[in-house]
Nucleic acid binder design. Structure first.
Lengths: 334, 334
DNA sequence: TTATACCCTGAAAACGGTTTCAAAAAAACG
DNA sequence: CGTTTTTTTGAAACCGTTTTCAGGGTATAA
């Protein structure tokens, strides 16, 4: 599966040129006479040359490695992003090193440190809670792409969808279906996504001349458990409502379960709409109406952008958007 | 966040010794006089020395990197394993490089090649379909741990749970609850796990003097969709059954959905038991009774074993076992 | 006291590339 | 055809470690 090491020197000898020339054709750094170039290429092919990554790195070249900072791997959304990154990187020359920031800025800073210590050529930061300031500073040191976060100063290096807009659409969908008393189970407050989704919800209500009822808004933490607790306290408070918009799908599952326990039917009695469209959402009962975030595509877009940055200095991030996927958890009211 | 590079030479000068001595204290390779040792340590601390990983690698040392071959990232089970690996590696000196084998042996071979090209110090292969033979051969080249697969010749380097036994227990649970006509939705045939689970199911039936009815066994592919299709064909075939054992949780979700669509109640009319206990399973309706695979722990065990192998040449894999988690999707019969 | 080990230590040689520098070759010019 | 300019090329230095090798000390033995 692997051979003894063929070095640049071996190539040089086989092709009857100097090491320097070989290096030049490999990197296309300096023009080389066509004849020699061919000879080198042939030799490389014949001996099955693979450059030693350490030597390259040492000599001030690239590490051919990119660092990925994820949070809380194990959450479906972030997993899909990771998968997108890995797949897009497979046919590049870069390999991904993963570290976990655990949604804690200190941890995040530390793991970024180890990445930097490994001389990664670039960074992809997925979510996280590191301050914008630090991220900006970091971006001056290394090429960086930020996924699932929207930074003022670095907006052209961010891959994200418009959470405000998406939440607005979701809420709007409920309103259009005749719902007026719409509860919202939020995500963790300090997550940017959560607050944006909350704002979208508020705005949709306002635009429809529905007054926001604070009692119908419950703070959760993106977990299934917080979904069941959210519904339980909603029910306890006694305000009537006919629909729930949750900040992610897992909370929607929890909400659905809590309702099930009380014998409340979905969607006949209460409608639910989630956010993310994780794979399971099509298979729960009833299949969940939700907002699809193109997680895989976001990962791919990020990876491609970074590779572009690294290779050419040019890159482009194709705009991605969330869209509503309508299944069976929302009923028309009246 | 990062400084100019402090080299071993700087340390040497500060501590008034030679580079060689510094290297020796770093690696503990040769005894060094206590006084000098202290001086070096102090200097390293003062200058905040971080060894250059490329130089180390080049000089024939370690790359301090371990390669992880996963399959089909995005499946909850494999994601959790990956998470376990990452977390266990965080407080080691190694960083993980991930590649995806896509459950195709050619792809797997290729990506292992790139890992080898990067001189990883060790390998963790999670699942996959590479032949046992190749894996064994690989294990002679590099330290390797295999997760979620059971290899004859390498059994002491494998982290896995007893799928046969676990499936036996699950089926047994159904039998004990009074079920006799028990259907099984299998996973992909060529996956070792799938066939072991199938065999466990068969054995439990046999031991209970229940004849295996081939019409109640349907081949699926681990996806939710195959779960719904499985139940649909089961229903079409017309043989009555009162319980279903699916090869994983996602198929259980699918099965449950198909039943829901037909107006068949779970668990009153038909019971379901899954396999994996992915996080969502506690929140579907009804909460799913299933076999819990300690995925996270498996990842951690693998990482720790590999680190042990690398560091000391010694390692130990603590035995992990699956266990039944009883929730609400199985009813007592009669 | 001198010879014999043994333990520490520094100098120097790898490791396999990239890059600088100056020389050689080729091309352009007068 | 000689001179100048430009393009190609090889030699050598360098990147930051580890490791080999041999020399210097010190302690032990004779």
């Amino acid at each position: 599966m692997e051979f003894k090491n063929v070095t640049i020197q071996d190539i040089a000898e086989t092709a009857n040129v100097s090491k320097s020339t070989v290096s030049r054709v490999i990197n296309n750094s300096t023009p080389v006479a066509e004849k020699k170039r061919k000879a080198v290429l042939a030799a490389m092919d014949k001996l099955n040359f693979q450059p030693n990554i350490f030597a390259r790195g040492l000599a001030g070249g690239q590490s051919m490695t990119i660092g990925i900072v994820t949070q809380n791997i194990g959450s479906p959304f972030y997993d899909s992003v990771a998968q997108g990154i890995i797949s897009a990187l497979r046919d590049s020359v870069y390999a991904p090193v993963f570290v976990d920031g655990e949604w804690k800025s200190e941890v995040e800073e530390e793991v970024i440190g180890t990445l930097l210590g490994r001389h990664v050529d670039g960074l992809i930061v997925v979510g996280g809670s590191l301050s914008e300031e630090k991220l900006v500073q970091l971006s001056k040191q290394k090429p960086i792409i930020v996924v699932a976060r929207q930074l003022e100063e670095l907006s052209d290096q961010c891959v994200f969808i418009d959470n405000f807009e998406a939440a607005y659409q979701a809420t709007r969908f409920l309103i259009d279906a005749g719902h007026e008393n719409i509860a919202h189970l939020t995500g963790i407050r300090r997550h940017q996504d959560a607050t944006r989704r909350f704002k979208g919800y508020c705005q949709a209500l306002t635009d429809a001349n529905i007054e926001l009822n604070p009692d119908l808004v419950i703070e959760g933490n993106f977990s299934g458990q917080s979904g069941v607790m959210g519904v339980e306290s909603l029910l306890m408070r006694g305000h009537s409502f006919t629909a729930i918009f949750t900040a992610n799908d897992e909370m929607a599952y929890g909400a659905r379960l809590a309702l099930y326990r009380k014998g409340i039917r979905v969607p006949e009695d209460i409608s639910i709409i989630g956010f993310d469209d994780q794979p399971n959402s099509a298979f729960i009962t009833p299949p969940l109406t939700t907002v699809r975030q193109p997680a895989l595509e976001m990962g791919q877009a990020a990876a491609k952008a970074l590779v572009g940055m690294l290779a050419e200095g040019e890159y482009e991030i194709s705009p991605l958007k969330a869209d509503l996927v309508i299944r069976e958890s929302v009923s028309r009211r009246r």
